[in-house]
Amino acid sequence: MAGVLARRLFSSVLVIVGSLILVFAILYVLPGDPTDTIVDPSIATPEMVANLRHQLGVDQPFYIQFARYFSHMLRGDFGQSLMNSESVLGKILDSFPATLALTAASSFVAVTVGLVLGVLSAIHRNRPIDLIARVVGLFGISMPTFWSGILLIVLLSLKLGWFPAMGSDGWRTLVLPAIALGLVGAGFIVRMVRSSMLDIIDEHFILTLRSKGLTERAVMYKHALRNALIPAITMIGMLVGEMLAGTVVIETVFSRQGIGRIIADALMAKDLPVVQGVIFFSAFVYVIVNTLVDLSYTFIDPRVRRST
């Protein structure tokens, strides 16, 4: 077991370092320069730009910048934003709670809506409820999130005034973005829950159980639902990753604080320390989650021990 853990740990470190190098490489070929954002190109003189680049350390070859960044990082120093010298770690830690809250709330919406619609849809198979549930689910999957987000703002905030249109303070500001993001996940869950419930309903063991005299309700909820939950829950783990990605767009639409907005801005401004910091952070979260998932499989089913 210790060997498995050690190997896991080693490859996790490799993955994190690899993703930092990849992002570094992308930034390397990304056109433009951090000074474009810092100083207006139409008034900057070549000396001004050269001086600024020197002060920011971006006049050095990229691999030296990366090596310096990396050595600082190993000592726990994530550096400062090139834009305003703000501490990268502080920036991430300030914004992460808002992103976490949004992801959690969206997952809640996705699971609740997805399960309710999925179960209703399976129970009332091929009746209007089923059709409505499936169409709602499909729309969730098929609409660009920035569009559904803006539609929600116009409808529920502007027209009806139920929820604030923007911000990241208080649960009320969480409602609309969580719906916009959660409906995507809900769409996938509806589909999953419905089809796995139907599969199970159709399977013979249900018929057998019923022949044993169990009531309809018991068959439905005790067996069909419980068996359908397993793939649905597996799905949720996967969707959390999708939702973290979705925050890039949704946080902008709803003007929320968060990791997604920071990295999108930093990427466009070529703010290397910030981009690397956020990527390190998200790679770290990704690796932790996946290691946990894989390890739990190992515990549950010894057969997979070799394959990963």
């Binding site: 992002v23 990605a245 890039v248 990527i279 998200s282 790679a283 990704y286 690796v287």
Partner: peptide, 10 residues
């Protein structure tokens, strides 16, 4: 895995 650690849209 390295590709997967970076959200697709990013």
């Amino acid at each position: 895995d390295i590709l997967m650690t970076i959200p697709g849209i990013l």
